[in-house]
Design a protein around this nucleic acid. Sequence first.
DNA 1: TGCGTCAACTCGCGTG
DNA 2: CACGCGAGTTGACGCA
Length: 303
Amino acid sequence: MVGKRHHGSSNMAVLLQSQGMYKEFSGPLFAPGTPTGDSLGSWSLTDLKDGRGNSLERPLFRPVELDEIGDDDSGEYPRQPDKKRRLTTCQVQFLEKSFELENKLEPERKLQIAKVLGLKPRQIAVWFQNRRARWKTKQTEKDYESLKSSYDALKMDHDSLVKEKEDLKAEVLSLTKRLLKEENGSLESFEPKRLPDNLQNLDSTLAFEVKKLHGQTMLCKQEDISSANSAILDSESPHHAHEGDCSMLMELNSYSNAFRLDHSDHSQIGDVDNVKHCNFLSPEDTSCGSEFHVAEQVFWLWP
DNA sequence: TGCGTCAACTCGCGTG
DNA sequence: CACGCGAGTTGACGCA
């Protein structure tokens, strides 16, 4: 018994010091008369506060009934009754602080805490397991809230971008139609002006790459734009429009697709798929008919 | 009395 | 194979 008392007291100091809790538990530990308190020295939890800041002067142990004390697994801890009983506020607070410091429980630490709190090591292990489960649940809730707010923000961004895109699309359509009207409705008088600088650069890059990769004469030439234009303007034969030249349209739409063509077979250039690639708007968007098909290409030819 | 919380249990799995 | 852990469940308990 003497050995036990000494052991418990020194364990307490070591445990509390090692956990940085020495100061908080520096007062007398157990209320006088607590059956197990006497064996563990004169510590108490008078410095512990409850959730409202009130001092907790309850004994660390709940009072152990005499008939609860008996043999258990280790023979060293009071036998708990079969009925479930809640841990005292002080025990929970001690465990919480211990959990804050380290949410895993090494065997030696488990024994020390069990001794300090007068509980079975098994109870400490169970408490830590349940505590980890509660922590994980809360963490999951936090993660969910965080992800949800991110999702909401992204969705708002996305929605506004979609709306902006629709507005721009409508504006393009409107301006294109207006442009055609201003040209007296005659596409014949429609002369494409010079390309924007960036597109001219792109075109020369294309030419270089075509020569380099295929060692052949460039399929599409910048100087053929005028003939391409007249072909494009032939709204009755979009297929034919690509046989002569579609350099600009191809470069704008599908750089890689253009290079995948088998240049020995020029008939592929006019394939339906390639016609699609030469459109900026989706192929499904054919509500405006061939006039719009031409108009949209003209729009991109226009500086 | 219904419901939420929590200690304790069971089961399955991973690890040394 | 013992041990510890996570996940799921059970049952006691406190409260409105």
